[in-house]
Design a protein around this nucleic acid. Sequence first.
DNA 1: GGGGGTTCCTGTACGC
DNA 2: TGCGTACAGGAACCCC
Length: 287
Amino acid sequence: MPELPEVEVVRAGLAPAAVGSLITSVSVFDERALTRHSAGAEDFVARLERRRFAAASRRGKFLWLPLDDDDSALIAHLGMSGQMLLRAPEATAERHERVRIGIEHPEHGELAIVFADQRTFGSLAVDALVDDGGSRIPTQVVHIARDPLDSRFDDDAFRAALARRGSAIKRVLLDQGVVSGIGNIYADESLWAARIHPETPAARLSTPSVRRLLAEVRSVLEKALAEGGTSFDAQYVNVNGQAGYFAHSLNAYGRQGEPCARCGTSIRRVSFMNRSSHFCPSCQRRR
DNA sequence: GGGGGTTCCTGTACGC
DNA sequence: TGCGTACAGGAACCCC
């Protein structure tokens, strides 16, 4: 599932080929890939053709490629199974290919950016850019908080936000309006590393606990990024179709029944928020 | 505005 | 072999 590290790997992979490229063609094969673009496929194509990509940016799990008109950007959210692939222009269609964008780079020549998505939770759009504290971000990203790896992430504001929330800390970690980029996998991993029970009310966490949690969130995200992200199957791959290696480093997620790497107790899996939570019942005690 | 549940979707695994 | 069902989960949306 693409979370911050996976989306950042995709952004960094797209940047060298996309930035500076001229968009020569846009083909939409499945309009469900444009649920974020309410004006429809025809409008989507018209807003992209003959423009150039000027940069490659990201906040949380959203990535976007600003256009050279300085007023709009192609935004992408990968959802559960979205992929942005770089392919040769004549490459055969991917199995779940939804959108293909033909580009021409001044040095690398012709390429295709292919958006493929099995479960169709992901989508693309062309969105207006607005000012946000000195930077320009798409309107659809305005409500998304900065991510913990962002140099302008405000640790004190995060601590204050937790103090106002009576919800379980895991629910708050997954709330992209409080802190972005964290999904089910890295929430479980960070809570395991910080020895915090996922259902602990956020407001009950002491200041040292919040500091420890934030440090572990950053550590987990950075390690996953260094290993190219987490791949369980073909659902997440980089722009070249290659898997990441962080799945081998997981301590809690998907390890139910296996011994905790710290204390040997069986990792437990419980249903929480219509998804799974994995934790060690011994070293992540509920207080 | 916080809180929490529902919904969208498709491929895979599993039980019978 | 074949069928039905549970499961995976990001985020918008809804009602309380």
